[in-house]
Design a protein around this nucleic acid. Structure first.
Lengths: 99, 99
DNA sequence: TTTATTGTTCGATAAAACTCGAACCATATG
DNA sequence: CATATGGTTCGAGTTTTATCGAACAATAAA
């Protein structure tokens, strides 16, 4: 076996992404980002303490769904569209199409 | 408000489906069903007690992802492809394509 | 420098989910 | 009838997650 060392068990990685998206609040975050581009953490209009929001952003970032960019005192979040499309082709469109 | 009473918040329903799929074991179940059609509960080769397996099947069924058909003493599971496609167009293909 | 604004991180607590054995229920088969 | 097969359900124990307040850090503005 020569030309195969990658293509490993894709299950866990995909499961992690789906798990991260399997929450109404996090799905709402993704929904707004898909429509409005970049949004700072406290700009989603979600009524919830900062620490709770921060938790959800972390889950989404660690799953590779969100990226963030610091500007001033704000942290702008954005969907990592290209990277996700590369990792899981067709997945994101299939989800965003139902938001 | 006349012509709108449905089309409610699609978030929770979608989140439930994604949550159900956000687990390696359940994703493996879906993967096998996508390839082999109908499989009885104990036919997935997953090393786990029946009660634990039953739990995962319940999660998948209650999310509307799996259907089941009793035959003899067995219960055959299958993906509810059409129903899922109707509820969330393009979602299932986007996921199965990465399994 | 002081004061806001925008977050993160750290416990602690509460709620959910996973796992497992045991009991149970059909449907078969001997 | 007795026994095996294939699953579900229940209850308990364990592990994860979610939520929140409090403390902290960095940048901006007064």
């Amino acid at each position: 076996m020569a030309s195969r060392a990658k293509k490993r068990d894709a299950g866990p990685e995909l499961a992690r992404v789906l798990y991260a998206l399997g929450d109404p609040i996090r799905l709402e975050i993704v929904r707004q980002l898909a429509r409005q581009g970049e949004i700072p953490c406290l700009g989603f209009g979600i009524d919830m303490p900062k620490s709770s929001l921060s938790h959800h952003f972390r889950v989404l970032r660690e799953a590779g769904i969100l990226g963030s960019r610091a500007e001033g005192t704000s942290i702008f979040n954005f969907l990592q569209v290209e990277e996700l499309e590369r990792r899981f082709p067709g997945l994101l469109p299939g989800i965003l199409g139902n938001l």
